[in-house]
Amino acid sequence: MGLVLSVGFYTCFLFFVAGYLVRMVTWAQQAPPRVLPGKTLTLPVFLNALVDILLLRRLLRANDVLWLGEWTFHASLVILFLRHLRYILEPSPPFVYAMDIPARVAAWLLPASLIYIGAMKLVIEKKPYISSYNFMLLGLMMVSCVSGLVMKYSLPADIVDIKHFTMGLVTFHMGISPESITFLFHFVIFLVLLVSLPTHMFAAPLTMIEARQREDDLPYLLHEK
């Protein structure tokens, strides 16, 4: 099983990395944003864009009800991602330890926000408001959250076995996989998510930076303040 999971992991990871490398090259070859010649990204513009990204500021303006769910979801996801770094870093850096309590909260907030987002889109808004692809992602995320919570509170897996296995993956020393069925389930869902991650995770911050740059470079254009 360890070998199967390891091969699965490397395949999915390669697929993920290669996909984004191709995208990065394509994006770099595209026409530059509509800016005046000689203008470059300045620190204030970047910081402004960073706040847009971190706070999902545009969504807050357009739909504050949905924003609450989306921001909670994305913030919880980041916290849980950081906390999960303890499985692939040895020794784990202090910020990973500092994430312990926030991650315990985020582990509950993440599925709660998914339920909230789903309910908002299905109940409050019209049915086609949510795309089938996002339905699939929401489902996968929910299954991942539930399996993670089950592992934490109901059917705990041996954390030492898990770390041994995951460290083996990142150091290319394939080992035995933990025996926990919950872990296997959680891990496989993670692999499926890895290859189906929405492209906006990487492209969206860039378009948000580009939007701020456009505003700064063409102030008299005032496209979207």
């Binding site: 995208r23 394509t26 994006w27 595209q30 969504l59 357009a62 739909n63 949905l66 989306e70 889109k121 808004e125 019209k126 086609p128 408001y129 949510i130 795309s131 692809y133 996002n134 929405p198 492209t199 906006h200 990487f202 492209a203 969206a204 860039l206 378009t207």
Partner: peptide, 26 residues
């Protein structure tokens, strides 16, 4: 890049004045 940046959240759909009159995904 703009095509890849779409999160498919559907916010445009909720606000589009043309979609309000002709609710097709296209």
């Amino acid at each position: 890049m703009e095509m890849e940046a779409c999160a498919r959240c559907g916010e445009c759909l909720a606000w589009c004045p043309a979609y309000a009159q002709d609710p097709r995904e296209s």
